[in-house]
Design a protein around this nucleic acid. Structure first.
Lengths: 125, 125
DNA sequence: GTCTTTTTCAACCAACCGGTTGAGGAGCAT
DNA sequence: ATGCTCCTCAACCGGTTGGTTGAAAAAGAC
């Protein structure tokens, strides 16, 4: 589980692989077609594609002696979900803090806020 | 631009750093607080935080001799946007293909479809 | 002032990464 | 069968990474 996220994020950390993703979003393609635009050997692209497949972002199906590479949109969605979760969490917390600060004049002893800024410590998570 | 995406995705490719993000989504914390739960030296966590800051995902502000670490939700959003863009592109293309296949009985010689599956090749992108 | 806390810097190490070259494998085509 | 095309596997190399230890900087506490 965590291993898959490791691989997926690592896969996207390379500009060439992100470029391949962008290309594959347009439509499926063979390894050779994918390699053509790059100033790089086909083996290098093949390696990149292996990284992407190991991360589950891409699949290949044999088509004669060529391999048709296909982008797995669902795997991408798993990434956005992870990131969005914490982005929203942080954003919500922040806006709540803002709300609390703004509302300090209105009502002051209402709910137990978990404390502004530095009072968020935990001992045994 | 591309360099920042490189760093951000690379930063998230490590489970420890993702864990730090998750912790920081709850609220800001000092380096020591962040390091406490881990079976690892404080220096190692400091390094991880440097990676996160270099990626722009996190900022630090001095608070006495401690450093308060803060999660930058906007930087996370930049990642989700990138991934979502291509996820939607691929998904839309796929559903369009499905629509074409389903509609083949209704109307067959209508628009020049870019060809199902394997006919999506391009020579000079 | 000295001592303690908090964090970073520096050097080191094993392991991994992104690229190369070279060889091999699996399918058509002739 | 022989050859051609498309792709992957293996070995290698320089550079980066994730962790360690040790020292030092910066700010409070005494």
């Amino acid at each position: 589980m965590t291993d898959q996220l490791d691989k997926a994020f690592a896969a996207l950390s390379d500009a060439t692989r992100r470029d391949l993703i962008a290309r594959l979003a347009i439509g499926d393609a063979t390894v050779g077609e994918l390699a053509a635009p790059y100033d790089m050997t086909v083996q290098a692209i093949s390696k990149h594609l292996k990284v992407l497949t190991d991360a589950g972002l891409v699949t290949k199906r044999a088509e004669a002696q060529r391999r048709l590479v296909h982008l797995e949109a669902d795997a991408l969605r798993a990434l956005t979900q992870w990131v969005e979760h914490y982005a929203q969490l942080a954003e919500r917390r922040y806006s709540r803090l803002e709300r609390v600060l703004a509302g300090m004049t209105d009502q002051l002893t209402d709910q137990p806020t978990d404390g502004p800024a530095s009072a968020t410590r935990k001992d045994a998570p």
